[in-house]
Write a protein that binds this DNA or RNA. Sequence first.
DNA 1: CCATTGTTGCACACCGGTGTGCAGTGAAGT
DNA 2: ACTTCACTGCACACCGGTGTGCAACAATGG
Lengths: 195, 195
Amino acid sequence: MNETRDRILDVALAVLGENPDAGMGDIASAAGVVRRTVYGHFPSRLDLVRTLTERAVTEMTAVLTEINASDAEADATWVEFIARVWPVAHRYRVLLALRRGEYGEAIHGLLGPVDELLADLVERGQHGDVFAQHLPAGILSQLAYGVVFAIADSDLSNGTRGARAATVTSLLMLGVPEARAIALVGDQPDSAPGQ
Amino acid sequence: MNETRDRILDVALAVLGENPDAGMGDIASAAGVVRRTVYGHFPSRLDLVRTLTERAVTEMTAVLTEINASDAEADATWVEFIARVWPVAHRYRVLLALRRGEYGEAIHGLLGPVDELLADLVERGQHGDVFAQHLPAGILSQLAYGVVFAIADSDLSNGTRGARAATVTSLLMLGVPEARAIALVGDQPDSAPGQ
DNA sequence: CCATTGTTGCACACCGGTGTGCAGTGAAGT
DNA sequence: ACTTCACTGCACACCGGTGTGCAACAATGG
């Protein structure tokens, strides 16, 4: 039904991923549509961004709550989390950039639940002596998943390469010993082993 | 002689540190001066930012080259580097935000030399089996000092707290074992032990 | 055939930030 | 007292992006 609307959302995600400062005009033409039409679906730029963010939050919290239910060790859970959430993180990498600037406030608010889930996971790991305790769980989790997004935003973004890099690096900064980290990602079922 | 100019630069750094999107007007009034005066010293906003960046690059390369001359282990060198460069990184934390956006190109160019020095150091550490090799030196160094800047930008920014957090966290993600990392920062002469 | 609905293509107002021009003013140096 | 120089306080043009209003248009489907 809302074929155009969905296309706008998808394209907007891609365009903003390329350049977070892209205007409504850029998004519109990239979606093969006129600027006016975009405003027909999203009264303001903020509406667009908010909708995008809500999408991301929904997908992430779904994964996170499901995974958090398992009783695995925190570090293994983290690995599972990155593996499952990586495609999402990569698609929504723009949110990293958008958290600063005009809409930072709104986005930060929406991302709140995700942040909490993440902090809980890290805290569990710290309590179980699996993660380092040199920083409070709230901050450490932010830094760790900030790095994941940063890698999602870099050259080795797509493919298994990026996922592995993100997982290992974040595990390391969480205080997991290198050997253990590598063993953990080795266990992970690689979707495409050759790549 | 250029008392006003210097003040503008200092204030600009502070203001932009607070809000990277601050306009020339904000900077001017924060410096107790009229917008027109700012343009008298810096023909364009880019000039201002560039000058700020050049300052930062100068200070950082000075520290980096000096430290790199020592023949200490790479991880110890890294610790020294963070300790020495921390106040600078904190003051110039705005550059992290400015690397994205309008002036990203220019800034990135100016920051090139620093990036190289850093990559060299990390590569040395990898070659000496002190740092992890799960990522190429260029990327790993970027991530590591990205985290340092991120912490410089966060709550625990100032004081010894932030410096320690930044050092330990970056060491961890460089692949240094937790025990070794903590030992290394323990060795560091804390300027204010009580804080 | 007609009505509804979504899209189009304008034009327009508005906003905030940038950068410029120029005549004034005041203080410091000679 | 006179010049110089930095700063001031306007006004102004310009730009790009946002958001709106409205008439036209095409497709869809009753």
